[in-house]
Design a binder for these strands. Structure first.
Lengths: 356, 356
DNA sequence: ATGAAAGCGCTAACAT
DNA sequence: ATGTTAGCGCTTTCAT
């Protein structure tokens, strides 16, 4: 409203209201409402008359008014770190698709892993009166979540990760510890002993779990762990590929011990790592095997195809959405923790260790 | 509302309203409104009192009520084909970021290139009372758009593409014809003559323009075009990499003439193409150069690095958002067509043609 | 500078 | 089965 002085003001088109429909159909407004929402029986003839008028007028209920009255906006919030990361975009796509089918609209919130942003979005979404929200993040402020959970109309579902399972917010994820254990054992079975581990920050529970899985695999096979091969990022950030490249580059440049395999905690990290490895003159997988995590689409198309852990991303999205809709509809959700199956996908980026 | 029979009904927390604030501050509701929105002068003392109460009560204005009254929801719609495609997700990220800064929330709509879905989303967004929307699509129903433009409160901005420039809807894009001409000439200068062209459907104007650029490059350099090397997809679809792989695979299997270079209309297509080329036993770029389009992040990390046309994706998003906000604020937008600069990025997937 | 009052378009409780 | 009525929480005249 800063400038009203643009002469070409848009002609204010007034869309038809429920009153218009009621009048033209010769019934009361509440009858129209009942006809539309099936909230009370309406005779067949009246119904027909009403829907004819609706068709003629191209009447569309005003969601704002509806929401104000009924406390239901058919809006849900989606808080994710980075929509430009295929891991999140694929989950998001699943969520959006399901929600759209169920008549909800999805408000997208991109945090760039910033805790302050998360808080701001949380506030914003409440103010938008979303019926619920799906939260994918590592660094949640649990107090804040609890407060929201209690003080607003908003239902919450976590996807992929949560820092604690001690509340009753549903979470859809996989068994990260098991997954990484599978991967590590797979490499060990290929004869690898010096296996580097490049991880995003273990401030996130999923990543703590994975590290645990890595270690457990060593323990169970009786191979000793070399801590100098474990590299943990300290800060969450968006440019995963670049970070994978940098970490690996630095590591290879200074480590006295060159591993025969590198495990990373995401496909993007792995893509960066492979580039760094090659630049140092090593071949993948002949000199060094590399593994990713997630199984994003590109993982199977890059060269060499990336050995990785497949997370059912789309399904995770769909399920999260489904659970949230149940919650919104007031249906009880028995299973608070939904743990989906992962799968080790062996491609060309890993091979049996060569004679040393 | 299907089942009310879950006993564990949530305790209905009632957030404070503007009336609560007014009462506690000992002023009229309208004064609170004026204080918050700066819509009329309010004395300093009263203002302080009001904001103190707001802080205490943790009062947040209800957007629904606000929107119902003022016809402003601070919601905008984003209609895109595929959030899981880095091209769109990067633009989307730019849009979301800018909009968030400006106090808007973004409603995400993913069409999967389906025209019917686009229509549904358009309706839905109007019903949600978005203040405006950004539309990225090839197959828009122009009548529908015109209708919306006229009959709703909704402002529209196109990003990347539009089938016609004959209306006054702003569009943010690059010069696709020029871009593809640049790329083609670049290959010609490297000595290539038999350059295949793999394109997504030319039902989209941007892709018609690019094809035109390809042809013009040949014309201007006096090299004859071989139509059997031009392959146009007939249907828009999401799985670009897979399609790139299939098209290239089929083409190489049956074409009597094997080109020394392949131009594709997107990086994803190129990634698929490279895989197919290798499977047929050719090397990239030694036997066959390959080019992409867009310059998504992975383009520089795959092996070989992909020669491509850089589109300023993030900027396109930001600018689209900016224009839309101007429109919403009633500010005149002089420049309806914003054509941004592209850039040819030469990487390792192309090289000088070898002696034949 | 502040207050009173109307009403945005709808749902829901109640009455008929 | 249908109508009447009272708000939901806010912005926006219009008075004062």
């Amino acid at each position: 409203m800063k400038r009203i002085n643009n002469k070409k003001a848009r002609k204010r088109y007034k869309p038809p209201t429920m009153d218009d429909v009621a009048e033209l159909a010769g019934v009361a407004r509440s009858t129209v409402s009942n006809a539309i929402n099936d909230t009370a029986p309406v005779s067949k003839e009246v119904k027909e008359r009403i829907f004819k008028v609706i068709e003629e007028l191209q009447y569309k209920p005003n969601n704002l008014a509806r929401g104000l009255r009924s406390n239901r906006t058919q809006l849900i919030g989606l808080i994710i770190p980075d929509i430009n990361n295929p891991f999140y975009s694929e989950i998001s796509k699943g969520i959006e698709k399901y929600m759209n089918q169920k008549g909800f609209s999805v408000v997208l919130c991109n945090t760039d892993y910033d805790l302050a942003q998360e808080k701001k979005y949380l506030d914003k979404l409440i103010q938008v009166n979303v019926d619920g929200l799906i939260f994918i993040t590592g660094e949640q402020d649990l107090n804040l979540i609890a407060e929201i959970h209690e003080k607003s109309n908003t239902r919450i579902v976590f996807t992929d990760r949560s820092n604690s399972f001690n509340n009753d917010i549903p979470i859809i994820t996989i068994d990260h510890k098991k997954a990484m254990k599978d991967m590590t054992k797979y490499l060990i079975e290929l004869g690898h002993k010096n296996i580097a581990y490049i991880s995003e920050p273990t401030s996130m529970k999923t990543l703590r779990d994975r590290l645990e899985g890595y270690k457990e695999a060593f323990r169970e096979t009786g191979i000793s762990i070399n801590n100098s091969l474990i590299l943990i990022e300290s800060v969450l950030q968006t440019n995963k590929i670049k970070r994978g490249y940098e970490i690996t580059s630095n590591f290879l440049a200074q480590s006295p011990l060159i591993p025969t395999a590198i495990i990373t905690t995401s496909d993007l990290l792995a893509i960066g790592a492979i580039k760094a490895i090659r630049e140092k003159g090593y071949r993948v997988p002949d000199d060094m095997s590399v593994t990713g995590f997630d199984d994003i689409e590109t993982a199977s198309y890059i060269c060499p195809g990336l050995t990785t852990i497949k997370q059912p991303l789309s399904k995770m999205g769909t399920l999260s959405a489904k659970v949230l809709v149940e919650l919104i509809n007031g249906n009880p959700v028995e299973e608070k923790q939904i743990i989906l199956e992962h799968q080790l996908i062996a491609r060309e980026s890993t091979c049996r260790v060569k004679q040393k």
